[in-house]
C-alpha cells in the first residue's frame, strides 16, 4: 500500500475512535462498577470508589454460585467442542470426498438445521430429553449442542478440505496409503488452522448459549454462566456491584480467548463468511 494512503484525515480518525470508545465504554463501566461498594454506586455511576472492593467477586463466585456456573460452563464447552470437531471432520470428509445415497438431500437436511432457530424445536427436544431421562444432566445440554454444531462444522471443514492442494492428496494416494491414513496423517495436519478456528467459534457459541440450558436444565447445579447470570439478576437486582462482578466472570474467558487468538478469529470468521 502506498504511504499516502496511510494519512487518514483527522476528523475521520476521530470518528473511528469515537465508535471504538463507544464499544468498550459499557465494558469499562462494568469493570469499574464491579469493584465498587453499594454506597459508592449510590454516589453516582461515574464516581471512583475509595478503594477497590474485590470482595464483590468472591461474593459472586461463592454466594452467587458463579463458581458452580463457571465449572458447569467448562464441563459443557469442552465436550461440545471436542466431539463437534471429531464428528465434524468425519462428516466433512464424507461430504467432501465420498459418495453415498442421498448425498445432496442429506446436505439440504443439514443446512435446514443451520437456519431453523433452536426456539422452533426446543419443545419437542425437551420432551425427547425427558423421554430419555436426560433432563437435568450435563448430557441434556451437551448432546443437542453437538448436534447443532454439525451443519456449520461440516460445511466449514468440508470447504477447507476441498481447498487443500490436490497434489498432496494425489501423492498420498499414489503412495498407496489407506483412506484412514490419509485422513489422519495427511489431511488432518493440514486442517489444524481450520479446526482451531472452528474450535474458537464453537467455544464462544457454546459458552454463550442461553436457550438450551434455559429450557433443558432447571436444576441450579447444572446451570451454565449466562443462565446463572439471569437467575442471579433476579435475586440481586439491587446489588449491582456483585451483578457486574458476575458479568465480568462470564465474559472474562471470552475476552481472554479473543485477545489471544484475535487474528485467527477474525481471519477465520471472514473466511467463513466469505463463502
Amino acid at each position: 500500500m502506498s504511504s499516502q494512503l496511510n494519512r487518514t484525515a483527522l476528523p475521520l480518525r476521530l470518528t473511528l475512535w469515537f465508535f471504538g470508545l463507544l464499544t468498550i465504554f459499557p465494558f469499562s463501566l462494568l469493570l469499574l462498577t464491579s469493584v465498587k461498594s453499594q454506597p459508592d454506586l449510590m454516589r453516582g455511576a461515574f464516581v471512583l470508589p475509595d478503594y477497590p472492593h474485590f470482595e464483590n467477586y468472591l461474593h459472586a463466585w461463592i454466594d452467587g454460585h458463579f463458581g458452580v456456573y463457571f465449572w458447569n460452563s467448562i464441563f459443557v464447552v469442552v465436550p461440545v467442542v471436542v466431539f463437534s470437531i471429531v464428528l465434524g471432520v468425519l462428516l466433512a470428509f464424507g461430504f467432501a470426498f465420498l459418495s453415498f445415497p442421498g448425498r445432496k438431500a442429506l446436505f439440504v437436511v443439514l443446512t435446514i438445521g443451520m437456519m431453523v432457530p433452536a426456539e422452533a424445536f426446543i419443545i419437542p427436544l425437551y420432551y425427547e430429553m425427558r423421554y430419555l431421562g436426560l433432563t437435568n444432566t450435563y448430557a441434556a445440554v451437551i448432546l443437542p449442542q453437538i448436534a447443532q454444531s454439525m451443519p456449520f462444522a461440516t460445511i466449514f471443514l468440508a470447504s477447507a478440505m476441498q481447498q487443500l492442494p490436490d497434489e498432496i492428496l494425489e501423492a498420498a494416494i499414489l503412495d498407496g496409503a489407506s483412506r484412514r491414513h490419509i485422513l489422519w496423517h495427511v489431511i488432518l495436519p493440514l486442517m489444524v488452522p481450520a479446526m482451531s478456528t472452528l474450535a474458537l467459534f464453537l467455544f464462544i457459541w457454546t459458552w454463550n448459549e442461553f436457550l438450551i440450558p434455559l429450557i433443558l436444565v432447571n436444576d441450579d447445579a447444572y446451570r451454565t454462566l449466562p443462565l446463572g447470570m439471569l437467575f442471579f439478576q433476579g435475586r440481586y437486582t439491587v446489588n449491582t456491584p456483585v451483578l457486574t462482578a458476575g458479568a465480568v466472570i462470564v465474559i472474562a474467558p471470552l475476552v481472554l480467548a479473543y485477545l489471544i487468538f484475535q487474528r485467527k478469529f477474525i481471519a477465520g470468521l471472514t473466511a467463513g463468511a466469505g463463502k
Partner: peptide
Amino acid sequence: KKSLGLTALKATGS
C-alpha cells in the same frame, strides 16, 4: 421474589 435458587450442591443428591 423471583430470584435465584439457593440449591445445596449435593453430588449424590440425585
